[in-house]
Design a protein around this nucleic acid. Structure first.
Length: 435
RNA sequence: GCCCCCAUCGUCUAGCCUGGCCUAGGACACGAGCUUUUCAAGCUUGCGACACCGGUUCGAAUCCGGUUGGGGGCGCCA
């Protein structure tokens, strides 16, 4: 039976690297019809916080990395103590000379071989390892000891963890051997570096999974992007669902090389998932953002109108946050102009043209984008001007920006009244600037 | 300082195990063009890498050794 685990310590948030380690453990367990176990390493009573634990668990749930069993090291202290005392009795460990009660393992002189599933054979000489504290003088276990005791006791078959644990492994193997426990298989996966090389840390932008969630990254996109860091489904495939990844995942295909986290690619993957999501489902994800922004105050809103809005912006945004911020002009009565948009609007005096458009838009029965476009095309034909002469200032006048979705869809979405109002405002501005 | 890991385009990677199919493929980013309405979407296209030196071999990105470079560890933190 394949049994893997993710063992976070609730002394911080779930970050990119931890999530990727968790994902690979999860994928390996699911791919082999095994069990995936969560073990909370809360032995440090001072630094462990409930708030962090909640955040980690919520992030894992959000990513859809479900676990079959969960354990807390803080509830297993008697086991660690019992086994440490056993080693003491067998003469394999000794008590610290300072008389404070710490229990320390004697490291035998030998070479230790790790048969790593990813790296192959790694050899260590224990001469470079000093005696290891098993139980601290406050009675709590050290990381390496609790880790080995639990990995063995919980019958884990595969230990999949970051490269940074390679040098812990010989220490742990010595503990396994002292305890007489069978060794699990080890697989050390490459670390994730920041875009600028070096360790991923706060200094290089967001690292917590929840921050990405708040920025409007989708869970599916996050899992997809993370799975591509150090692994590839092959056949030039960039978009891979969790189910597909489970089918294709093999620990032997995991890279040896550290991977740099690249926000641009992550955003590209997220864009893919956003634009391929049902507009209706996308709106559901967007609602909390809309409410937080104050775009929607109560339950009295036009759902169909919102779906239309979502459809318009969905292909061109990389995060939900962008899909909240870009259409701000659709949720306000008046437009706020960007400096470039204002400049564009005032570039030529189009007040007459705007007047004409305003009149004709007002007289439309149907205000859908095809009717709007029809009227517009007819008007420019009469005026003998090119469409772009009018379209760009029009976009500026109605949206306050120079870029955005197709202008006719936007006009239709804004509705007759607001279009009329904003055209009047634009005409006013044009007249003012003439003086 | 000591120990360990790693080395293909700027970045993520395919290929490496089982040498020839590799004038090294894809994706992101970047550049150019198209989209007679913008781009922040789409399409086309361009730029761009086997770290270096030796060895093995008829033949090396692929196997071996070294150098250099990057990363990690050396806590009564996890």
């Amino acid at each position: 039976m394949i049994r893997t685990r993710f063992a976070p310590s609730p002394t911080g948030y779930l970050h990119i690297g931890g999530a990727r380690t968790c994902l690979f453990n999860w994928l390996f367990a699911r791919a082999n019809k095994g069990k995936f176990i969560l073990r909370i390493e809360d032995t440090d009573k001072v630094r462990s916080k409930q708030e962090y634990l909640d955040e980690i668990l919520n992030s894992l749930k959000w990513l859809g990395l479900d676990w079959d069993e969960i354990y807390y090291q803080s509830q297993r202290f008697p086991l660690y103590l019992e086994l440490a005392k056993k080693l003491l009795a067998e003469g394999k460990a000794y008590e610290a000379e300072d008389g404070l009660g710490a229990i320390i393992l004697k490291i035998p002189q030998k070479t230790v071989e790790i048969d790593d599933l990813i790296h192959g054979k790694i050899v260590f000489d224990t001469a470079t390892i000093k005696d290891q504290v098993l139980i601290k003088s406050d009675g709590t276990p050290t990381y390496n000891f609790a880790c080995v005791v639990d990995d063995a006791d919980l019958k884990l078959s595969h230990i999949i963890r970051g490269d940074d644990h390679i040098s812990n492994t010989p220490k742990q193997i010595v503990i396994y051997e002292a305890l007489g426990f069978a060794l699990p298989a080890f697989a050390h996966i490459p670390m994730i570096l920041s875009g600028q090389g070096g360790r991923l840390s706060k200094r290089f932008g967001a690292t917590a999974i929840s921050e990405y969630k708040n920025m409007g990254f989708l869970a599916e996109a996050t899992v997809n992007y993370l799975s591509l860091l150090g692994w590839s489904p092959g056949e030039n495939q960039e978009i891979v669902s969790k189910d597909e990844a489970v089918k294709k995942f093999s620990i032997k295909d995991v890279n040896h090389t550290a991977a740099a986290f690249n926000l641009d690619k992550f955003r590209w993957v997220n864009n893919y998932y956003i634009k391929n999501l049902e507009p209706d489902k996308l709106l559901e994800l967007l609602m909390p953002f809309f409410r937080e922004k104050g775009y929607i105050k109560d339950d009295n809103f036009d759902r169909n109108w919102l779906v239309d809005l979502v459809k318009l912006f969905q292909p061109r945004v990389s995060t939900l946050m962008e899909l909240v911020e870009w259409p701000v002009f659709c949720f306000t009565q008046d437009v706020e102009f960007s400096p470039e948009a204002k400049e564009k609007l005032l570039e030529n005096n189009l007040s007459k043209e705007f007047e004409l458009l305003k009149e004709r838009f007002a007289s439309l029965d149907k205000f859908d984008h095809t009717s709007v476009e029809e009227v517009f095309r007819k008007t420019i034909e009469e005026l003998k001007i090119k469409s772009k002469v009018l379209i760009h200032p029009l976009r500026a006048a109605l949206t306050g920006a120079l870029i955005g979705p197709g202008i006719f869809e936007v006009i239709s979405l804004l509705g007759k009244d607001r279009v009329s109002k904003r055209l009047s405002k634009a005409i006013e501005l044009l007249k003012e600037s003439k003086r």
